[in-house]
């Protein structure tokens, strides 16, 4: 059967960029997590396509590792989301800026 790897990779790229747009435009942490999942999935798709192109199982093995990583990332990430919601009463990432540079505040002391 004929098969065009470029088309698959372009689909993977489109899915990846859509995930990226989601990360960039949404402020809600839940949506950001969802978008990260989309990006990971797109990367897995690219791996599988490459494996199919060369007839090797390695692409699928890599997809399995990505899957495992996504699972643990999501579990930890959701725990953090719950904790954030509990302490800050918000899910807006723009509100969570404790790690910014505070030079002005220190110099004013």
């Amino acid at each position: 059967m004929p098969f065009n790897p470029q088309a698959v990779l372009i689909v993977a790229a489109i899915l990846f960029v859509l995930g990226l747009v989601g990360v960039l435009t949404r402020k809600n942490i839940i949506f950001i997590l969802v978008s990260v999942e989309i990006m990971l999935n797109a990367a897995g798709l690219a791996f599988v396509a490459a494996g199919a192109r060369w007839g090797q199982p390695d692409g699928q093995v890599m997809f399995l590792f990505i899957l495992a990583m996504a699972a643990s990332e999501v579990s930890v990430g959701l725990a953090l989301v719950m904790q954030t919601h509990r302490q800050h009463k918000t899910l807006d990432v723009q509100e969570l800026r404790e790690l910014r540079d505070k030079t002005e505040e220190y110099s004013s002391i």
Partner: peptide
């Protein structure tokens, strides 16, 4: 275009 190769779960499991 490239030729299409079927990879079953046995191959994946061995790898």
């Amino acid at each position: 275009n490239a030729s299409f190769i079927f990879i079953d779960s046995k191959k994946v499991a061995l790898s």
